[in-house]
Design a protein around this nucleic acid. Sequence first.
DNA 1: ATTTGGTTTAACCATTTGGTTAACAAATGT
DNA 2: ACATTTGTTAACCAAATGGTTAAACCAAAT
Lengths: 197, 197
Amino acid sequence: MTTEEKIFEAAFRVFQLKGFKGARMQEIADEAGINKAMLHYCFKNKELLFEAVFMNAFGKLAPQINEIFKSQDSIFEKIKKFTDSYISFVMNYPFLPQFIIQEMNNNPEFVTKFLKKENRPDPTKLIHQIENEIKLGILKPINPKQLLIDIFSMTVFPFAAQALLKGMIQVSNEEFMQLMEERKKYIYEQIITSIKK
Amino acid sequence: MTTEEKIFEAAFRVFQLKGFKGARMQEIADEAGINKAMLHYCFKNKELLFEAVFMNAFGKLAPQINEIFKSQDSIFEKIKKFTDSYISFVMNYPFLPQFIIQEMNNNPEFVTKFLKKENRPDPTKLIHQIENEIKLGILKPINPKQLLIDIFSMTVFPFAAQALLKGMIQVSNEEFMQLMEERKKYIYEQIITSIKK
DNA sequence: ATTTGGTTTAACCATTTGGTTAACAAATGT
DNA sequence: ACATTTGTTAACCAAATGGTTAAACCAAAT
């Protein structure tokens, strides 16, 4: 593994855990097992290192989101595939959702920056599809944007609010993960039941 | 307004916007229109000031949550009241949910600390109630914890992930607030449809 | 008028933190 | 063999930051 990779992975871990402001360059260096000057040699400064890490992190999630937006499946199929693949993926990176949401809120300029990327998830197509399936009488007449919010909420929130949730409903990490595993199917069934005509 | 109150409100604003690590004592002092030394005179140090602000913030939300846990209403009634009161309340403090989730994740010791408070929201009663209504055949057989997660997810997530969401589905702040207004009823209807037998 | 108590401030301090420099080592090309 | 580029380190630096101190202010009590 190259030094650059060691730094990157260390930074990924530290930033994810502490956020941009909370992360210390020294800690990243220690975690990577190299000298602090090396950080600035490989990645000019904290901002650039963070940006690399952040964009990479978001890049890991974007495909899961794009899947739901771009594929040719029916709404039902899309929801099933999305919840399943998103939860499966994020169970391996349990802190990713909170990390992204937190930094997006703390640096609103990131939102506009990421929206400019060409692979930006664009929901307009999905919204049209929902409107269409409503017209066809497959779905109940609902606001497509609300449905979209539902899908994200039910899938992403448990991970984003992990600490609070675990504390509140009193579950260990194992039980939590099991709940999330169960949730793959559960979300799909709940949503379908509530929108199918 | 006393100096202490001025400081507290300023700290509330700054911490909410920048988080614990991101907030600067000088900024809070400026925002409060007083000298930095005054902060340390009134609230010994950053941690204590933050703790005061954070516990107060959580205290604002706890009643909304306790309502759903403690009242004598049916599940249906509880969900209706919760979504309505929570969203109404949080529309006046749009950054509160993200603030609390963020700091809970960044300082896991807060979770245990807040769980010790006597007014801690305890969902066991609600879970029993759900199990009971399932037995009575009012609700479909679902995992009560999943239902609880749904309620929180659908209500809290849009606020917690505000920046990302607004960017992704391309809505202005006004449109967002309108969606949230609409959501008070919407969530209730969606959930009821999906769990009513 | 003077003391007394809390309140407020300007100036200061120690530490932390992101970042730099200059020297050194190890490849790499000629 | 030698020069040049690339990788790596220890020591250092300036700015930022949380926190302290000692003096000034000011209202109420004596």
